[in-house]
């Protein structure tokens, strides 16, 4: 029982990270109906930037904040320069561009930082917080950071005029343009925000999986699964999906199928959800007219 509880809690911790990345995916999906295959590599690249900053002597939280800002700018720039020209292109062209981004970010990171695995520091103390023995303090901290990010995003989209404008631009671009919202820039901002959220996920997961250019492959897959389980157009659902996938992955990996088949859980979830209930648990069901 104790081992089970431990796995569930550890699952919640990684689940929070999947939830953040899933949230980043959903944000871009809501605005553009595209799934960003390069989201994981963007997070990985930002995490390397954070590593450089810490390596240069910055205190952790300063590096953290600076990285989030850099990731935001990077996201905006990528949207403006690379994604904008294929905005109205067929799906295949867009997917190819995403894959190209994935490959470029991966190889450029390998080029700059080499492929040797690096350790990444955790900002949380080594002793368990509050004397709770089921979770390491990093796991608790990761959950806390995830929840804080969620709250901030919720508040931003719910209570600020800019958040409202972004939601409007995603829901109905034509009408938004008519009332004077600059829809193109809202999309770019959405990309920036997604990249920033992704960078937080990257920095939280790096102490667990270590830093290497291919670290995000599996995590991106879990994030896809999380986004799909929750309904790919529902941010709250994506967060729920993230925690669910994290717990499922940990519990199944520890007790049922063994650690080496963990990725298959994601594969089965993705295909299962897409086939049985493509809109996920909380997504809207769309009916298209001929």
């Amino acid at each position: 029982m104790e081992a089970f509880l431990h796995q569930v809690l550890a699952g919640l911790a990684t689940g929070g990270i999947y939830a953040s990345l899933a949230l980043a995916l959903v944000m871009i999906y809501q605005a553009t109906h595209l799934v960003n295959f390069a989201q994981g590599e963007m997070a990985m690249f930002s995490t390397y930037i954070a590593w450089s900053l810490i390596d240069a002597g910055l205190p952790y939280w300063a590096a953290f904040a600076l990285t989030v800002v850099i990731a935001f700018v990077l996201g905006v720039v990528i949207e403006r320069v690379v994604i904008r020209p294929v905005e109205n292109a067929p799906v295949l062209a867009v997917v190819v561009v995403f894959i190209a981004l994935l490959v470029i970010l991966n190889s450029v990171t390998g080029w700059i930082y080499t492929y040797t695995i690096k350790t990444f520091p955790s900002p949380f103390p080594e002793q368990p917080l509050f004397g709770i023995k089921y979770m390491s303090s990093h796991e608790m901290g990761a959950i806390g950071v995830t929840l804080a990010v969620l709250l901030l995003l919720y508040a931003f989209f719910r209570f600020t005029p800019l958040g409202l404008a972004m939601r409007a631009a995603a829901q109905n671009p034509e009408s938004s343009r008519l009332v004077g919202i600059r829809v193109g820039w809202m999309l770019a901002l959405g990309w920036g925000l997604a990249a920033a959220v992704g960078s937080v996920a990257g920095m939280m997961v790096a102490p667990i999986v270590y830093l290497d250019p291919n670290m995000m492959g599996g995590i991106l897959l879990y994030a896809f699964a999380a986004a799909l389980v929750g309904g790919v157009d529902n941010p709250g659902g994506a967060v729920f999906g993230g925690f669910l996938v994290g717990v499922l992955e940990n519990v199944l990996g520890a007790f049922v199928i063994g650690n080496e088949l963990k990725l298959a859980v994601a594969l089965v979830l993705i295909i299962g959800v897409l086939v049985v209930r493509p809109s996920g648990f909380f997504g809207k069901v769309y009916v298209t007219r001929v």
């Binding site: 109906h33 897959l221 897409l274």
Partner: peptide, 23 residues
């Protein structure tokens, strides 16, 4: 099952297949 998936979703499902295959 891929019949029910179009465009992006099929790309996602096959991407998942490609990533998890070595495992």
């Amino acid at each position: 099952p891929a019949l029910r998936l179009e465009g992006l979703y099929l790309a996602l499902a096959t991407f998942a297949l490609g990533v998890s295959l070595p495992q």
